[in-house]
Design a protein around this nucleic acid. Structure first.
Lengths: 113, 113
DNA sequence: AAGGAACATTCTAATACTCGAATACTGGAA
DNA sequence: TTCCAGTATTCGAGTATTAGAATGTTCCTT
């Protein structure tokens, strides 16, 4: 059970198209930096920056293999949630004013001094 | 099926502690601004700003009732995902270097000109 | 009408984020 | 050794986000 602050930080970290694309890719299996870079068509340094950001929260991690760094998803549950988020339909549901009115009136009834 | 860009924007929008707290509250039922403000102990103007941000993506909406504005979750599926995210445990899963190595070597085998 | 409660809007300063450019580091092949 | 592929780091400028202060609007009550 994390604080809202921590969860918010995590969501904000996830909220970048390149980082989402990286997660999407790594969800299919480990991959080295150059391959990620070519897949996303983003400069290598920038990929590294985003990988560092993702690593800072342990969303991804890597293994060294020669001079390759094979990145992989370090928190599968989190990646799964993200994938679900990417796919999920979240349509707007209209609610009748009457229904809202019934539930949502002022809680504190103007307490005098 | 939205673009990564749109999804990233949405995640970034969700990635703020006050906005998460608002969503958390509204997930329990509609509520007017002053009640939200008192619950969160955040200045009213700031609450309004965050509500406006959430409304810009139709995450919340409101009904007018006198001079009250009863805000409510406009996309229940989305709110449900957010709540799940707040609760979910996403532990780091260690992977053996051998396992990663097996899967993650270089895809392009250095094609010469 | 007049006043106040409820809420929104605008502006601003501070802070945070992002990217590109340049450069550094490292291991393996030659 | 030397060189190169693969990757990381640092820095700076441009941009976006945020909170607070101040003020505006609207509706209700009296």
């Amino acid at each position: 059970m994390n604080s809202l602050r921590e969860n918010a930080d995590l969501l904000r970290l996830l909220g970048h198209p390149t980082r989402l694309a990286i997660i999407q890719r790594l969800a299919k299996g480990p991959q080295c930096v150059t391959d990620i870079q070519e897949l996303l068509d983003v400069p290598q340094a920038n990929v590294s920056q985003h990988l560092m950001a993702l690593r800072s929260r342990r969303i991804v991690d890597y293994c060294e293999h020669g001079n390759l760094r094979c990145y992989y998803i370090a928190r599968p549950n989190l990646a799964k949630l993200v994938m679900k988020f990417l796919v999920e339909e979240c349509p707007v549901v209209e609610r009748s004013p009457a229904e809202i009115k019934r539930l949502g009136s002022r809680a504190r009834p103007v307490v005098p001094a």
